[in-house]
Computed example of a mutant assay.
Amino acid sequence: MLNRFLITLCVLFNSSLFYAQSLDESYTILNVEPSKTDARIANSNTPHLIMYNQKQKQGKLLLFLPGTGGIATKGPKQLFAVAVQQGYHVINLSYINRPAVAQICKGENLAKNRKCTEEFRTRRIYGTNKFDFIGDASYDAIENRFTKLLIYLAKNDKNTNWSAYLEDGKPKWSEIAVSGQSQGGGMAAFIAKTKKVARVIDFSGGWDYSAKNKIADWYFYESVTPSHLWYGTYHATEPKAKTIHETYEALNIPKDHIYAFDLPVPEGKRGHSNGVRNIGYAPQWIELLGSGD
């Protein structure tokens, strides 16, 4: 069964009430274990998180991919609430996110294969190639998990038309915006290179290399998704901020679509994840998301 629960969100911005809304019975949050959608899946079987407002006109779908070690149900719900406010349905996908690209494609592995990161991401997203350094099965791939979840929701959740995001049994990418943080942001960017998505928002999305101090070749490949639909963010305090900015330039993201966040980072927290967690960026989130209608 689909688990439903209500949340109430009240946040402060610049010492005034910027965004406050009770997510009443019209809002739905679902938790679905990947194995419920595909019995072959056993690894990284923590639930997907789904969020939408059934009283709104159904708009586009925002697919969000967590970073390394990220748990979908613990994702940035304030960001997702803003996305729902903008007209989106939201899926925070549970997928295998350990080990990370940067943990595998380095040193000798990278020296022997300059396409290491490209092959890694292809395996983790699509499961269509052979890549011996990670144990992801083909059915563990992001695309399969996402597809099977949409099919499951179309069958089991009649409050909305999940079939609108499917076409011939595959994701209808033109109706789907892709986003993610860190490793997940890199996955979103990689998807948008080869699938024409509705929008792509990369939050501090990785720093793939093809050789020492040389960003990966795949960043420079021609993109199927037009450049005006690309957005990228990072925090100015991140150790890899300069490299992330370099990857965004290689991805041909317009200058005014690159956001260098700089609000103070709370003590004990990291700038790397601040962009999806700090409600102070709500005005920027709205710009990044645009209208999901």
Rank of each mutant, 00 (worst) to 15 (best):
D293K: 13
W162P: 07
A192Y: 04
K130S: 11
G280E: 01
D38F: 01
N129R: 12
N156L: 07
F261A: 05
Y27I: 00
K214L: 13
A100E: 11
L251F: 12
T73W: 07
A42I: 14
L2G: 02
I286D: 05
E25M: 05
M51I: 01
F13L: 12
G180T: 04
I96A: 03
Q183A: 09
K193A: 12
Y221I: 08
A164K: 15
L251R: 11
W218I: 07
Q21F: 07
K106D: 07
R124Y: 03
Q21K: 11
Y139S: 09
D157K: 13
P76V: 08
K170S: 03
A42Q: 13
V265A: 12
L30C: 08
K115H: 15
E33M: 12
S182T: 09
F203T: 08
A141C: 09
K106T: 13
F146I: 00
F261W: 02
L166A: 12
Q181S: 15
H228N: 14
H235T: 00
A189D: 06
L263R: 10
K155Y: 01
E25I: 11
E238N: 00
D168P: 01
W218P: 13
N31M: 13
N129K: 13
N156P: 05
T243G: 04
G184Q: 00
Q85N: 08
K130W: 08
S163C: 06
G87M: 07
M187Q: 09
M187C: 08
W173C: 02
T237E: 04
R199F: 06
G135I: 09
W230I: 10
F5Y: 09
T46S: 13
D38P: 01
K255S: 03
A154C: 06
G67A: 10
S291M: 01
K255Y: 05
Y88V: 03
I41T: 01
D168M: 10
S16D: 12
F13W: 09
Y248N: 04
V11E: 11
E267I: 14
L263H: 11
L2E: 05
I244G: 00
G185K: 05
D38I: 02
G184M: 01
D168K: 15
D157M: 11
T28Q: 14
F203L: 08
C116R: 00
Q181H: 15
P266R: 09
E175N: 15
H257W: 10
W230E: 08
I201G: 09
L263M: 04
G184S: 07
K269R: 06
D168A: 11
P171L: 15
N161L: 09
